[in-house]
Amino acid sequence: MLKNRIIPCLDVKNGRVVKGINFVDLKDAGDPVEQAKIYSDGGADEICFLDITASNENRDTIYDVVEKTSKKCFVPLTVGGGVRSVEDINKLLNCGADKVSINTAAVQNSEVVVESSKKFGSQCIVVAIDAKKNGNKWEIFTHGGRNNTGIDAIEFAKKMEDSGAGELLVTSMDRDGTQVGYDIDLMSKISSKVNIPIIASGGVGNLDHLVDGIKLGNASAVLAASIFHYGKHSVKEAKEYLDSKGIPVRI
């Protein structure tokens, strides 16, 4: 039976791990290579790096981080943030990333998704959807959550599937950093609209939120940062909790 995945996410800035509250007010909290290794040894099903401010800054540090991490971690490594072109994807894959997540570039030009999934295969193309509720719909934000595009998130999800994305990483901008739980409504609506797996992100504060993301949000994988990063829970604890709730996990 296919297991639901738990993915610790490390937000990386200038080669260091940080985690913001609603993408501002950053705290420095460690070396990404060591963190990734601790997570993979602890049973993380995948590791995710998001180079959060990369759209605006020099981002060469991430290549070095990815290269070092991939020599130590033998679980899948997803890298995103500031990925603009097929060439950026190529560079990250060559450094040892297994999947690349594309956000702003996919919204601005879906051809990047079409082209890269043809060139490298859908298996390594993740489209990151940052969405915020506006009335009774969700709208897509880009540039690390700074720009509202007005694009409907559910329709966009379908378009990304059709363009060749292998997975969708869905983040609720309303919930990110709040620790009140995933936006379940958003997750389940996107999951029922597309046939590719979705990864729920944004808002995890306790282990029940992970359970809800899978059971109610129909996510194939759950991503979280703070609850793991500041030592509130280990990945192992999270897996045992999910297992006790009848969710299939790799233990």
């Binding site: 296919l2 639901n4 099903d45 298996q123 590719i196 194939s220």
Partner: peptide
Amino acid sequence: KLPHIGWNQ
């Protein structure tokens, strides 16, 4: 869902 992505026995 396809692709079949993740850990399986």
